[in-house]
Design a protein around this nucleic acid. Structure first.
Lengths: 93, 93
DNA sequence: ACGTCACACTTGCATTTTGCAAGTGTGACC
DNA sequence: GGTCACACTTGCAAAATGCAAGTGTGACGT
C-alpha cells in the first residue's frame, strides 16, 4: 500500500478531513463541530471514534458530561496537506 | 462551502486521489491504472468520467480502441496536496 | 426531591456508494 | 472468419452514509 493509500485509509472517509480542518483552529466540542460542519450526528460520532483510535485527536474532559476534541501532534501534522487541498479547491475551474 | 469541502467534492471520492497520483507519473491507459491500483473496474470507469467532467484529466486517443488518461493543468496542480498527504501517511504512528 | 434542560451521543431504517463477477462492443491480427 | 486485447457496462450483494427519533447523565432552578 502506498503512502497516500495509508493516509486515505485514516482520513479518506467522508467528513474526516473537514473535522480535522475545524480542529486546526483549536479544540471544539461535539455540538460545535456538528453545527459548524452540518455533519450527521452518527457520522460525526463514528469519525471522532476512528480519528481518536488512529491517534489523530484526543478527548479532553471538560465539566461533567461535556468534553472537547483536540488534535494530537499527528493530527496537527495534517495542516500542510489540508492547506494545500484547500488552496486547490479555491482555484476556480 | 469551504475551499476544502469544494476540493473534496471533486477528489474526495474513493480512489480519486489514487488515480490522480498515478497519473502524476505521466499518462496511463485504463488497464494500467486498473492493474496498478487494484481498483474495481466499474469504479475506475466512474471516477475517470467524474474527473474528466471536473477538468482534472483528459482522454488522449491512441491507436484504434485504446486511449490514455492524462492530467490537465488543474490535475497537475494537485501534486502539492498529494505529496503532503503522502508524506503524512508515511510517518509512522 | 423533582422536573427540566443542555449535551453527547445511540439506534433503526432508507438511500447511496462501493465492490465483485460476468458480459458487451470494437478493431487489429492471423 | 475466428481469436484476442482493450475498454468498458451491467446486475446484484455488501457496506457506508444520512435522516429522524430516542437514550443517558449531570447541572440547575423551585
Amino acid at each position: 500500500m502506498s503512502d497516500l493509500a495509508a493516509a486515505l485509509d485514516i482520513v479518506g472517509a467522508r467528513w474526516a478531513l473537514l473535522v480535522v480542518e475545524r480542529l486546526l483552529d483549536g479544540p471544539q466540542r461535539y455540538g460545535d463541530l456538528q453545527r459548524n460542519l452540518g455533519v450527521p450526528t452518527n457520522m460525526l460520532a463514528t469519525r471522532l471514534r476512528e480519528l481518536e483510535a488512529a491517534g489523530v485527536l484526543t478527548r479532553l474532559p471538560l465539566r461533567h458530561n461535556t468534553r472537547a476534541y483536540a488534535l494530537t501532534d499527528r493530527g496537527l501534522a495534517l495542516r500542510e496537506a489540508i492547506v494545500a487541498l484547500g488552496r486547490w479547491g479555491a482555484e476556480e475551474a
